[in-house]
Computed example of a mutant assay.
Amino acid sequence: MSEPEARRSGFVALVGRPNVGKSTLLNRLLGQKISITSPKPQTTRHRILGIKTEGAVQTVYVDTPGVHQGGKRAINRYMNRAALSTLAEVDVIVMLVDGLRWTDEDAQLLKRVMEAGRPVILAVNKVDRIADKTRLLPHLQALAAKAGFLDIVPLSAYSGDNLDVLEKIIASQLPEGDWLFDADQLTDRSERFLAAEIVREKLMRSLGDEVPYALAVELEEFREEEGRRSISAVIWVERSGQKAIVIGKGGEQLKEVGRQARHDMEKLFDAHVFLRLWVKVREGWSDDERSLASLGYQND
Rank of each mutant, 00 (worst) to 15 (best):
M1D: 14
S2Q: 11
E3Y: 00
E3T: 09
A6G: 00
A13M: 10
V15L: 02
K22F: 05
L26M: 15
N27Q: 07
L29G: 06
L29Y: 06
L30S: 08
G31H: 03
G31P: 11
G31D: 05
G31I: 07
I34H: 04
S35D: 00
T37E: 13
P39N: 12
P39F: 07
K40W: 06
Q42E: 01
T43R: 09
I48H: 03
G50T: 03
G50W: 04
I51A: 07
A56F: 00
V60C: 13
V62Y: 04
D63C: 13
T64C: 09
T64F: 08
G66Q: 05
G66T: 08
G66E: 03
V67C: 03
H68Y: 06
H68R: 13
Q69C: 06
I75Y: 07
N76M: 08
N80R: 14
A82D: 10
S85Q: 15
L87Y: 09
L87S: 02
A88M: 12
A88C: 06
V90K: 08
D91S: 03
L96V: 06
L96Q: 08
L96M: 14
W102V: 10
W102Q: 06
T103D: 01
L109F: 05
L109D: 01
L110C: 03
K111G: 08
K111R: 12
R112G: 00
A116T: 02
P119M: 06
V120R: 07
L122Q: 09
N125L: 12
D128V: 02
R135N: 12
L136E: 01
L137V: 15
H139Q: 13
L140H: 11
Q141I: 15
L143Y: 06
G148E: 15
F149K: 12
F149I: 14
S156D: 05
L163G: 04
E167F: 00
K168Y: 01
Q173G: 00
E176H: 02
W179M: 03
F181S: 03
F181N: 03
F181E: 01
A183R: 15
Q185A: 11
R189N: 00
F193E: 00
L194T: 03
A196P: 05
A196E: 07
I198D: 00
R200Y: 05
R200E: 00
K202H: 04
K202E: 13
D209K: 12
E210Q: 09
V211I: 14
P212G: 01
P212L: 04
Y213M: 01
A214K: 11
V217F: 09
L219W: 12
E221W: 03
E225C: 08
S230N: 14
S230C: 11
E238G: 10
E238D: 09
R239G: 10
R239C: 08
K243R: 15
K243M: 10
K243D: 09
V246K: 05
G251Q: 08
R259L: 10
Q260V: 10
A261M: 08
M265C: 08
A271S: 15
H272N: 12
V273E: 02
F274H: 14
K280V: 12
G284Y: 05
W285K: 10
W285C: 13
S286K: 14
E289F: 14
Y297A: 11
